[in-house]
Every structure is written in C-alpha cells, then in structure tokens.
Nucleic acid binder design. Structure first.
Length: 462
RNA sequence: GUGGUUGUAGCUCAGCUGGUUAGAGCGCCUGAUUGUGGUUCAGGAGGUCGCCGGUUCGAAACCGGUCUUCCACCCCA
C-alpha cells in the first residue's frame, strides 16, 4: 500500500454515524436558541489578524492560527525582525489574516460594523467551527465547534437568568442529568482583591484562585505567594475557602467577607438576584451553584461568569461557559454597549453523551427498507414501491446492482437495515412483495399496503 | 510553548537481552448454499513494522531527528 494520507493533528474526520450524533446535539441546541428568541448569524472563517490579536491575552495570541500572505510575502517582510529572528515581530508583516479563535470577538466586530442596522437589544446565536493552535488532549482539539448565544444592548440581569434556564433546557433535553451550572461574578473577584489590598494583582489572584479544584487550597496559596501576594493578604481571604452549604448560605458568607468593598457587594447583589429568580422559576435537571473560585481566562468579563461542569461521573473539563462583558465592543470603538452570552462546547458534549450512552438509537437510524435487485424488470417493479414508500416518509432504497443474493442480503445486514423486500417474477404476477424482517428472520408475502403498514408500525414502536 | 508517552494487517494487540520466510483474535474475500444475511465448516487475500537517517555482519527491536497519539503543565470548549 502506498503511504497513507493523514490529517493534521487535533483535527478529525466524522463518519456518518458521528455526523448524525453531532447533528442531534446541534439541532437540540439550535432549537432552544430559537425558542429563546435568538437569531442566527454567520461570520467568515477568517478575520483580519488585527481584529483578533490582543483580544485573548498574550497566551491567546500565540494560539491564533495565522494565515500566510499570498504572493511574494517575503519581499514585504519586516527585515529587521527577520534578521533578529523575532517571530512575533515578523508575523505582522507576513500575515494579515487569521482563523477565528472564538465566536465572541467576531460577534463584537459584527455588532460594531453593523450597528446602524441592528435593533437593540440584539440576540444572536452562532454555531460554527473555531481554530486554536493548541496542543490536543482529551476533549481539546485544534478545530472544534462552538455554539454561542449572546445578547448585546441590555444590562438587565434577566438575561443572565434566562441563560441559566437555557443551559438547563438544553442539557435536560439531551437527557444529561446532574449538570452543574456554576456562577460567579467578576465584581466579587475584584472585591476580594480590594479587601486584601491587592487590587493591582487581580488577574494573578483570580488565576490562582481558579485552580482550587485542581491544586487544592495550599497550592492556591503557594501560587499567590509566588505571584507576590503577601502572606497577610492571603490570610485575610482565608474565609473564601470556608464557604459551604447552599447557594443562600454561601451568599451570606460572601457578603460578610466583602462588606467593606462597594464593587464586591454589587456582585453579591447580582448573584442574589439571579439565584432568587432561578429559585422561583425552577430548573429541570440542573443545579445552579455559586463558585467563588470561578474566574475563566477571558479578561473581558465584567459581571456574571458562568461555567457548566459535566456530571461528576465523567472526567471532562467544562462543557460550556459564558458571562457578561460590558466593554466588549469598546475595543472596536463602540462604547457603552453591554453584552452577555454563553457557549456550548459541542465536541465535549458529544464525548460526554457518548460516555454515558445518552444518544437515542433513532439518531443513527438510516435506511429502513432495502429492495433486492433481481434484474431490470424486477428493479423497475421495486422502484415503484420505493417511490411510494418514500412518499410516505420511509427511507427506502433499491440495491443498485443485480448482484448475488448473498451480497445484497449482507449489505442490508452490515448497514443494519431492518427490512428487506424480495420481489421477483411470482410477486410481480401477484402484485405482492415478500417482506423479510432481518431481526426476527421471518418473512411473508404482502400487498403494498400491508408492507407500508408493517414498516411504519415497527418504526413507531421502536 | 515545556516535560513525558505512543505508533506492528482494515481493527485490537503479541513479537524475549538485535538473529531465518513478522504472528494471533476479530474483520474482509471465495466456496459449501446460482431466491435468503446474521450461526457453522473449508480455503484465501492483506504488512516498505509511522517516516528519514545512524550504529551493526544483521534492526520491528538500539541511537538521533521528524510526524502522529495520549497525558501533565500553560491555557482553555
């Protein structure tokens, strides 16, 4: 055999069954987005490099896939940067486009660019692939889909409430139980930093705090020390680690810690508002949980921060996240437009559903009836029935060649087609069909009406 | 980006400290069975041992590089 072709690392091919399952998830998400009043948009796969650079922090810039300029790009290259082997400096001169890194920044760009055509508040959803030059791991790919819903132009906390409901609705609909929607607020984090007198170290502080799950309390404290946060300061926020109990109980403890911080108390009130509303309307299968260590990487969040954790039984990173970002369009020159949104990680949700066996059988079901091909006349006779079955919404097909019976039966078997129809000279004379049930192995001579009834009947029962 | 790990038939994997024609199970193809698949039986096809280079009389095995897989860190869906 010649050398097998391959695909770049972190990318995948999807088989028919995988596409069917992915579509099942996408359709469920899309359906709920629309139920909640979001409208779809799509944006290009690649943006101008400058649209993306600097929006995701230094780490993010590194992970953006840059597209090499066309033509004789070396002529226009920054010679000084080239001589000095300064890759970062050189990039700007040889690349002016890049693959989109997420859907939020392109959305911000879209809003600013089309601001005069939009009716505010604007609720949009977007389901498209994004690319990151990351090193792949379980549930981490270099090409993956995001399913985002965002609202711009409304500061109302009812939006946050609705997003929590939306998460619950989608995951409940997918049959996923025990999903934890974790919530926090940037103002609470800012409050912590203020209370301990380390406001200028907010980012380092929150990044360390975010790792509590992984490295434990001592680990977090050590990292804070390493980042130059004083031991006294760390001692002051000790109560953070003691927050326990229900949402309400944690809120009380939190209010106690943050009582001297105006920003912090604002965050507490927002959390309280959202929790009260959710308690009133109720959730189906998910729980809303206050997690004061939740920070998430993106530094454009200014209010609520959301993250969805898969059920504890599966080891998987977050399967969704989002938050409020008051200043998002500000970076493109449009001030005072508040946005809030959430994202679903399609690829990770897929892995979770697969691991828990939650895909319904009918998702991957394809052809229901296969007609055996006995030759030209018989095929024509069969094709008439195929047409009528299709008209009734039954997926039916005629085997394209009058190959050996064994081969045709085998094809039906391998593809998991539940019914096979044999129609030769006898059946044609009688205007009947021989219908074989591949699971049971029995068969009988039937009219078209009976045939239709049989295959429909089974379809409903299963 | 840092450190580690993996790659042998379509799939899952054996292959001892380097030593003839590289194996198994499953799958695939053919026949027993020219209007009957999934069971059984008989036979068969299929491998530049990821790729490039080095060490050696001799490399799937040892060394270097590279690509890929998975994992930890970083970061994140």
């Amino acid at each position: 055999m010649a050398q097998k072709p391959s695909i770049p690392k972190g990318t995948r091919d999807f088989s028919p069954a995988e596409v069917a399952k992915r579509n099942y998830i996408i359709n469920t998400i899309r359906q709920h987005f629309q139920l909640y009043g979001f409208q779809p948009i799509e944006t290009p796969s690649f943006e101008n490099l400058e649209t993306l650079m600097g929006k995701y922090g230094e780490e993010g810039d590194r992970l953006i896939f840059k597209i090499l300029n066309s033509g004789d790009y070396l002529k226009k290259a920054d010679q000084k940067a080239y001589q000095e082997k300064d890759s970062t400096g050189l990039t700007a001169s040889i690349s002016e486009k890049a693959l989109r890194y997420d859907l939020t920044v392109p959305f911000a760009r879209y809003v600013v660019q089309h601001q005069n055509e939009l009716e505010l508040p604007f609720k949009r959803y977007q389901i498209q692939p994004v690319w990151r030059a990351d090193r792949p791991q379980k549930g981490r790919f270099r090409e993956f889909y995001q399913c985002d819903a965002d609202v711009v132009g409304s500061k109302s906390l009812w939006q946050e409430v609705e997003f929590v409901q939306l998460y619950d609705a989608v995951f409940s609909s997918l049959g996923l139980e025990g999903v934890r929607v974790k919530i926090n607020n940037r103002k609470v984090l800012a409050g912590f930093a203020e209370v301990i007198g380390e406001s200028e170290k907010l980012i380092d502080f929150t990044v360390a705090l975010d790792k509590l799950d992984k490295i434990g309390e001592e680990g977090v404290k050590n990292e804070m020390l390493e980042k130059g946060i004083s031991a006294q300061a760390i001692a002051k926020i000790q109560p953070i680690f003691q927050l326990k109990g229900s949402f309400g109980e944690k809120i009380q403890g939190l209010a106690e810690i943050l009582r001297t911080s105006e920003a912090g108390m604002e965050g507490v009130e927002e959390l309280q508002f959202i929790n009260n509303a959710i308690e009133q309307v109720g959730l189906e299968k998910s729980v809303l949980d206050l997690d004061v260590t939740l920070a998430r990487g993106l530094n454009y969040y200014t209010g609520a921060i959301l993250e969805v954790a898969a059920p504890d039984t599966v080891k998987m990173g977050s399967i969704g996240g989002g938050g409020r970002y008051d200043d998002l369009t500000g970076i493109f020159g449009l001030k005072n437009l508040s946005g809030v949104g959430i994202s679903f990680g399609l690829d990770r949700i897929y892995l979770v559903l697969e691991e828990l066996g939650l895909f319904p059988d009918e998702v991957t079901e394809t052809t229901r009836v296969l007609f055996i091909n006995f030759g030209e006349k018989e095929a024509l006779y069969a094709l008439g029935a195929v047409k009528n079955l299709r008209a009734a919404g039954i997926i039916a097909e005629l085997y394209p060649d009058s190959a050996k019976m064994k081969k045709q039966m085998n094809y039906a078997n391998k593809r998991g087609i539940p019914f096979v129809v044999l129609a030769g000279a006898e059946e044609m004379d009688e205007k009947t069909f021989t219908l074989k049930d591949m699971k049971k192995g029995d068969q009988r001579r039937v009219s078209f009406e009976q045939l239709l009834e049989q295959v429909q009947l089974k379809a409903d029962v299963e």
